[in-house]
């Protein structure tokens, strides 16, 4: 154990390099719970007869909110995600300072993967494909659950793999 943890004035304006890895996990726990609610609603509700009723059924409304949150994380960056703010305001001050920090690029990319999965499910549902909403929400749930409970971020692994294969370029230090 190296006792020193020099983290002067954690994250206020000038974010120190890397983020507390517990932040995205906290967010994933909320996301996983909400996705489970989407699955439950999707299973019990009948599929709406037309586009408007499909868009307004509770499962679709909640999934739309989640799609929006994923988009926020993917495009504004994981640090600016509302759950991240919630974590820094409410949770982090009650925890010991992080023993390690992680690069924000992989969890941000993971938000994009979450966005693609849930948005695809939502669009297919609106078109009227049966089961699309439940399947997409269930898939996204598994990923969020693995992240929250096992600290295994599927999207992050995918990011590292894609960087390795040269499909996406490594971002040195994104703002």
């Amino acid at each position: 154990m190296s006792g020193a943890s020099p983290q002067p004035g954690a994250a206020e304006n000038g974010t120190p390099f890397g983020i507390d890895p517990r932040g995205p996990r906290f967010g994933a726990a909320i996301t996983a719970t909400l996705l489970l609610v989407v699955v439950l609603l999707g299973l019990t509700e009948p599929l709406g007869a037309d586009l408007v009723s499909r868009a307004l059924q509770p499962s679709a409304v909640l999934l739309t909110v989640l799609v929006g949150l994923f988009a926020w994380g993917a495009f504004a960056g994981i640090q600016k995600h509302p759950y991240g703010l919630l974590f820094r305001r409410l949770i982090a001050p009650r925890l010991a300072p992080p023993t390690e920090r992680e690069h924000p690029a992989p969890p941000t990319f993971a938000q994009l993967v979450g966005l693609l999965v849930t948005a695809t499910g939502l669009v297919l549902h609106l078109i009227g494909v049966p089961g699309a909403l439940v399947v997409a929400a269930a898939a996204a749930f598994v990923a969020a659950f693995l992240n929250a409970v096992f600290a295994y971020c599927l999207g992050c692994q995918l990011y590292v793999l894609l960087v390795r294969l040269g499909i996406i370029r490594r971002s040195g230090a994104p703002a």
Partner: peptide, 24 residues
């Protein structure tokens, strides 16, 4: 898929959590 009763739906949810745990 849709219009399921609450009990089987909850069973599916339980199965989903169990499967995700196993995978983890």
């Amino acid at each position: 898929v849709g219009g399921m009763d609450a009990l089987p739906a909850l069973l599916v949810i339980g199965g989903l959590i169990a499967a995700a745990t196993l995978l983890g």
